[in-house]
């Protein structure tokens, strides 16, 4: 590592976000974790309290980080929520809230980062989608729509800024050992786990390894890609 990069991870308080933040810290980057609470974020991650549904909060935090470090080199847009319910019973509020946090706030993070990255003529953006975007799990019409949405968004942005040395990629985690997966419930989890060719759930660290790679200088010719980290669950999708 020649110089310390400024890395921003949203939803860094637990699960995949926490693992990503820790992985960047371990390789010597300066890492800012954006979430409501520090949660389980590793030591070395600089927590910034942000309610991601608040555009003002988010902008203020990112402005402050840019001012403090003078750069925004890597952004991992990971924050996401679920409000699972079968479609016929899903309320407008549950649909809108998931879209707002998972898709709209992700776009805001990306847009703000680009302002800096375009000037720098460099940058790495990694958006965390989900295998659910491609498989469409029952009860997740809102979540699947939001996670499929970020794929289209990421690819449109990837085309816009590719000539500026900025890459925008997507990871699509499958069944990973996180609170969000546990929330699927034992029955549904067991059913899905049976279909994983690798025969087990993945770890947040295994997702973080892929994110760190896509964010590395060596991944300079990869943009607009979707990298599944799912033990083969979504193969062919």
């Amino acid at each position: 590592m020649t110089e310390q990069r400024t890395v921003i991870v949203t939803g860094a308080s637990r699960g995949i976000g926490a693992a990503c933040a820790e992985a960047f810290v371990l390789q010597g980057d300066r890492v800012f974790g954006l979430s409501r609470t520090p949660g389980d974020a590793a030591s070395g991650v600089e927590h910034r309290s942000v309610d991601l549904s608040s555009p003002e909060d988010l902008l203020a935090a990112m402005d402050a980080i840019e001012q403090e470090t003078g750069s925004i080199d890597v952004v991992v847009a990971n924050a996401g929520i679920t409000r699972d319910q079968l479609s016929v019973r899903m309320s407008d509020e549950d649909f809108a809230e998931v879209i707002d946090v998972n898709l709209t706030s992700t776009f805001r993070v990306v847009r703000r980062s680009l302002k800096r990255m375009i000037r720098q003529r460099s940058g790495r953006i990694v958006v965390v989608s989900s295998i659910g975007a491609l498989m469409g799990l029952p009860g997740q019409a809102n979540y699947a729509a939001s996670k499929a949405g970020v794929i289209g968004m990421a690819r449109a942005v990837a085309r816009e800024v590719a000539s500026r040395g900025i890459t925008v990629n997507v990871v699509a985690p499958g069944l990973i050992e996180t609170d969000m997966t546990t929330a699927l419930g034992e029955d549904r989890l067991a059913l899905l786990a049976d279909q994983v060719p690798a025969g087990r759930l993945g770890t947040p660290e295994e997702v973080a390894a892929a994110v760190v790679f896509l964010a590395s200088p060596t991944a300079s010719y990869i943009t607009g890609a979707i990298l599944a980290i799912d033990g083969g669950l979504g193969m062919g999708l």
């Binding site: 302002k115 375009i118 000037r119 816009e160 800024v161 000539s163 500026r164």
Partner: peptide
């Protein structure tokens, strides 16, 4: 100048 150049210039 492409469209992104112009956006940058405006910014």
């Amino acid at each position: 100048a492409d469209s992104l150049d112009l956006v940058e210039l405006v910014m």
